[in-house]
Design a protein around this nucleic acid. Structure first.
Lengths: 160, 160
DNA sequence: TTATTAAGTTCCATTTTAGAACTATATTGA
DNA sequence: TCAATATAGTTCTAAAATGGAACTTAATAA
């Protein structure tokens, strides 16, 4: 199985990772959420090669997670901005932050803290249920076959 | 910058990704959350090469995200189970699910649905504030330098 | 006229990965 | 006894991805 094929799996994790699941893309997006918009700044902050960066930014633009917006003419230059689809990846980054803060920060404590302007507290994120609002415990969530997987299975059947 | 060095960045996202940020590891963990425990089953479900799988499982064990538990003697065989540290990655997977469901599922709808036994509803996850409980809007969260980054900066200064 | 800035591109050596076959240990059935 | 099956790897090689460094292009600043 080549990586390029995982997007065809009937699985939202696989499909999401087919775009953002490589070694650098989520770091690029982290920088986007911190306000970075320009090529050289990404390159310096992350330290990946310019070649790779070009490649990853193009892929993100292609998938409409970032879009290129001209910020000057002469010479024409673009900056990279998050789209709605890109901003929707915020929870993925924040869950990684929370895990990294808990398990990787060591004695120094979390590198970055997050201040919630709505309640004026330094906070961390929690996962809650869209229906009842309660905090999620993995054991209390049961995965079931959904319409997407059913459709996929039926297509497989009709092919054979 | 080589990938192996990103874990030294003063950033929880980078540190988390240094372990789970490669192309296959989060898919392996997805399977763990679906109940998969054995080598061959991982291999068939994910379709990565046995060689890579060995490598990734070992890395996860090394980082105490999975642990090997013998399930038979003669011949001695182990299965892979999530540790507490591993279970703590559940939010990362679920945020990827939510994004994939929204942006990658297309007309078929989500492949898998999630049933919350606490409230008896099919649900999706939301991000909420640990302090006030409200749903998080990225614009309302301000990152600030935390103790980990301060300690890091001071170490850098004293070295030079 | 030479540097500098910004955003890439090009080239090559190194590293990682995919794919397939092979190995080790034990059980089952003929 | 012998062949087939099951499980969990390991080994090998060709192909693909990556890292590092230098080069390019277009414009401004010294």
């Amino acid at each position: 199985m080549k990586w390029d094929n995982i997007q065809e799996m009937p699985c939202s994790v696989a499909r999401a990772l087919s775009i953002v699941g490589d070694r650098w893309t989520l770091l690029i997006l982290r920088d986007c959420f911190m306000g970075t918009k320009r090529f050289d700044k990404f390159q310096k902050q992350i330290g990946l090669t310019r070649h790779r960066l070009t490649d990853r930014l193009n892929k993100l633009v292609e998938h409409e997670i970032l879009r290129k917006v001209p910020y000057q003419e002469k010479p024409l230059r673009y900056e990279y901005r998050l789209t709605r689809k890109g901003v929707d990846l915020y929870p993925v980054l924040m869950t990684l932050v929370k895990w990294g803060d808990k398990w990787m920060a060591g004695e120094d404590g979390p590198p970055i803290e997050y201040f919630h302007t709505q309640c004026n507290h330094t906070m961390s994120i929690e996962l809650s249920c869209s229906e009842c609002g309660e905090t999620i415990n993995p054991k209390e969530v049961i995965p079931k076959v959904g319409p997407g997987l059913r459709a996929y299975s039926e297509r497989l059947k009709s092919q054979s």
